[in-house]
Design a protein around this nucleic acid. Structure first.
Lengths: 109, 109
DNA sequence: CTAATCAATGAGTATCTACTAATGTATTTT
DNA sequence: AAAATACATTAGTAGATACTCATTGATTAG
């Protein structure tokens, strides 16, 4: 059976649009600080920190403190519970997954 | 870009554990009625109907009224926005996650 | 026809949550 | 050392939401 707590945390975390947008920005960056994430986010720095805490607890991001900055990066393993859930309950995901597999083989046979 | 409203609806709908459990039961059944879903759910029939309404609006289930019963079935297309969102980050995996192939085997052996 | 069953809906409520504002704690700059 | 910057955290709040209970509409059974 799928670990209920993990998929629960991931889905609940990604359900909020603001938090998901933060995650996407982290993913699209190699590393990114809180101030950068705050800029253009529409919410305060405090809110960003709170969302990052949720994302970290869900295993979706990791942090690297350096001086007074904290650099955040995406933690791909955090999406595994969702991928796992999809593989059980998403027929279409299976098809796309197969495509991704094929793509991977072409790139690295 | 992925349609923001669709992924938002799907994720918000699946984020609730009770509603997700209902969806999973619908997926695992060919067709299932509201009374059946209510049995052993821990919530009232009214709550079940409300959750089914959300699932329907998110495009995750479809209904087939027959007499005084309403049969619900899963609508796999409803998961497409989530699959798209995931496959978008599948690219990210390819770029950053070295052991993706191992991961793939774990998910879909 | 009347009673029972299935499902949807509305009102009311308690809980959850996303936010701001303010403050605290380091660290860096001047 | 003082000021400024980066981030986390807390308290408080407004809005969302998941639930129950009660009711309604529709269909089937007796």
């Amino acid at each position: 059976m799928i670990e209920a707590t993990a998929i629960d945390a991931v889905l609940r975390t990604l359900a909020d649009p603001t938090r998901r947008a933060i995650f996407e920005r982290v993913v699209n960056s190699d590393e990114i600080t809180v101030v950068e994430l705050t800029r253009g986010s529409g919410v305060t720095q405090g809110a960003i920190s709170q969302h990052l805490k949720s994302l970290k607890q869900a295993g979706l991001v990791a942090e690297r403190p350096e001086g007074r900055n904290v650099y955040y990066r995406a933690q791909p393993e955090g999406l595994v519970p969702l991928a796992d859930w999809m593989s059980h309950y998403g027929v279409f995901w299976r098809e796309r997954f197969a495509n991704l597999k094929t793509l991977l083989k072409e790139i690295d046979p």
